[in-house]
């Protein structure tokens, strides 16, 4: 499988700092996969997201050793323009990500395309295509500011997707959203995954992330401490590590501590139920 993005023994210091935000991180993101990132606050999750999107070091400056490759090219050589045209980036606050220049959702989605200098007819075509793809046609004529947080985040995603990035990185996209908005965003991510989009998503809602991600990366203190299936990563996480366990996993770990669970940890409810002797705890 082709590699979309990779970090090779990558260590990064933000400008003017002496403690690295990421330390010796080596990871390869395969094209078409959904990779989740978990870790406590200030663990380096965001820095890893910025690095995989090329925003570090092209927008957030600093020094580094090792390198980050985006589609085979060194992210530092791509420059900001090269990075943003290859990798889409979405973060947690939906309202700050609205351009502030658009009266309608359609215009908002078209904004990035206008910045790319596409012909108006091409902009119109891609905007309509994106609206249809994401099921946002009903919202096309509405003001982005009149929408719910979840809908705004979908518009932001649409605006970034319309630019046809080869990979999408999302840094805590649902932390400001209510459960309805969260569900809407994850439903969209599931559809994107099914369509073969490469997705990297950092989240505190680890249970939800584990249901969609093929693979999890656990970042702590700037280091990659675990890289594997959700079950493997949750098995490695301790109670004081700042990462929430899905309820089935927590229950199974409790059972395992009493010698009443063997085998891989369940992430989904069905897996827990299947693994229980006689179907009861």
């Amino acid at each position: 499988m082709a590699v979309a993005a990779a970090c090779e023994d990558y260590t990064f210091w933000y400008e003017g700092t002496s403690v690295p935000a990421l330390a010796s991180v080596t990871v390869a993101i395969e094209a078409g996969t959904f990779v989740g990132i978990v870790g406590r606050n200030a663990s380096g999750k965001s820095t890893l997201c910025y690095s995989l999107a090329g925003l570090v070091p092209n927008f957030y400056h600093g020094r580094w050793t090792g390198r980050v490759l985006l589609f085979g090219e060194d992210a530092a050589d791509l420059g900001l323009a090269g990075a943003v045209t290859r990798v889409g980036f979405v973060f947690h606050n939906p309202e700050s990500q609205l351009s502030g220049t658009s009266l309608t959702v359609r215009e908002e989605i078209a904004f990035g395309l206008g910045n790319l200098g596409l012909a108006p007819s091409e902009i119109a075509a891609r905007t309509d295509e994106t609206l249809a793809l994401l099921g946002l046609r009903d919202l096309a004529a509405r003001s982005p500011y009149a929408l719910s947080g979840g809908q705004q985040q979908l518009v932001v995603l649409a605006s970034v997707l319309a630019m046809r990035p080869r990979m999408l990185v999302l840094d805590e996209p649902t932390s400001e959203l209510d459960p309805v908005g969260t569900a809407e965003v994850f439903a969209l991510l599931a559809r994107l995954k099914a369509a073969g989009t490469t997705l990297v998503v950092a989240e505190h809602k680890s249970a939800l992330l584990a249901q969609h991600a093929d693979r999890l990366l656990w970042i702590d203190g700037g280091r990659l401490r675990a890289d594997g299936t959700p079950a493997q990563v949750f098995g490695a996480v301790g109670p004081a590590d700042g990462v929430a366990l899905p309820a089935p996993t927590a229950v199974a770990r409790g059972l395992a501590a009493r010698g009443r669970w063997t085998g891989p940890l369940p992430v989904r409810l069905e897996q827990l139920v299947e693994g229980l002797p006689h179907g009861r705890i």
Partner: peptide, 14 residues
Amino acid sequence: ETRAFSVPGPKTHL
């Protein structure tokens, strides 16, 4: 930036 605001070249509009 994520909307290519700084990408060089003339800008257009819908």
